[in-house]
Design a protein around this nucleic acid. Sequence first.
DNA 1: TTACCTTCTTGACTTGAATCAAGGCAGGCA
DNA 2: TGCCTGCCTTGATTCAAGTCAAGAAGGTAA
Lengths: 252, 252
Amino acid sequence: MTIHLTDTGDNAALKACTHEYQVSCGNCRLNSICLPLALESDDIQQLDDIIQRSKPLQKSQHLYREGDDFQSVYAVRSGTLKAYKTTDDGREQVTGFYFPGEILGMDGISNNSHASSAKALETVAVCEIPFTSLEKLSTLMPNLQRHFFQLMSREITEDQQLITLLSKNSADERVASLMLSISTRNARRKLSSTQFRLPMSRVDIGNYLGLTVETVSRVFSRMQKMDILLVDNKEIEILDVDSLRRMANLSA
Amino acid sequence: MTIHLTDTGDNAALKACTHEYQVSCGNCRLNSICLPLALESDDIQQLDDIIQRSKPLQKSQHLYREGDDFQSVYAVRSGTLKAYKTTDDGREQVTGFYFPGEILGMDGISNNSHASSAKALETVAVCEIPFTSLEKLSTLMPNLQRHFFQLMSREITEDQQLITLLSKNSADERVASLMLSISTRNARRKLSSTQFRLPMSRVDIGNYLGLTVETVSRVFSRMQKMDILLVDNKEIEILDVDSLRRMANLSA
DNA sequence: TTACCTTCTTGACTTGAATCAAGGCAGGCA
DNA sequence: TGCCTGCCTTGATTCAAGTCAAGAAGGTAA
């Protein structure tokens, strides 16, 4: 039996998941994001068979920790996670935020142990994809192999975007870019691209963007004063996308 | 016929490559870096068959450019390359340096077009690995598939290291880290870990580390004054590794 | 050899973001 | 209801790295 997953909005994690573990990839409304593949229905069945849909994670619980044995990669079904590394001197570096449909954990493949930790920013449901099964299946399904090569390659290019952002852009540009990125990712999930609730704290934003909390806060205030954003704590409304784009210094 | 590659030192590119195209992976002295695999000799033969060893690139020539169709990934045989992206406002962001035994070009997989450009910093010889052949071979050789998953995962974790460096560390720490990284990579190739010639300019170093040339130059001067490094233009000698490590703020 | 050009270094000054410090606000709990 | 406690904001000050400017050193070509 499969049940259609009716809502994967960020607050719907519990509702969506406690009773609806048995979603299949074929039915999942996120499959266009996480599995944009020309797979035969038979293939999808095989993939479904290896994927484990376990009970949801509560806010601030870890999906995995840096140094844990690497077993699986994970697709986010609902909710948001942050990935972070702890530096040698004990500070934290947020390396990414993961929204529904996105896949995390691939940095663990190289050493057979997770290179970063993943923590739920709110209630989260994930699909667990055991990596050895995925490898075996990939040798049988060239499309799937290619898909995972592409996913990892995308992660590389996204990291390179972040490197450029950190290396070249001002505080304003960094915050503007993150807002645009979240906006785009919401649009992909058919959610509003102009109004959303930030799942992460100012500290996390600052940490991700290489800025202090105070700077992040000041940038938000400035953008509000310029009528680019409407900021009410974590609720964000983009009032002027064009100005935001200009501020982010991105032509695309 | 295969000829043993006698020298892959950075200046030996021309000598090594104009007459010695026919090296095989089985004989290549870099294979412990680029192919640390338990492959049967028959497997290695199959891999050899798809790899193309073309004529060397001269300094400042491009191996590929951002936006080029993605066909292959490349293993560096001798010499050094830099990878860089051009930002929307026309500036350059160096995303990595690639030394002999290292593999580049994997960021092109996700879009079937190269996400960055690769330019020779000196005379360079590469092994070209056509990606579609590699994919096919990977479905037949699970070890090879796993190896490429691992290589890509390593690229991700290295990018995350750089993100952390850019986001959290001072100019001194960044330059110290790069010197240690180059030192380590030299050691892997059985070259001196304490004395080497930087293949890249100060501009490239600054660009990679998110610093200006002037700052890079000042850091080198400071390190020289502290008897940590001996700097003579591009010739570097590490006088005090422990202090350099302390300066880089890395316990490892 | 000189002349030119690029790359590197050093100094003086400026500036954007960090730090330090104080208060405000919202949500949870007694 | 009111009081914590943990976020978030705002202001004043400091500082690390950027900018601007000048000159030195190294490589290349005539």
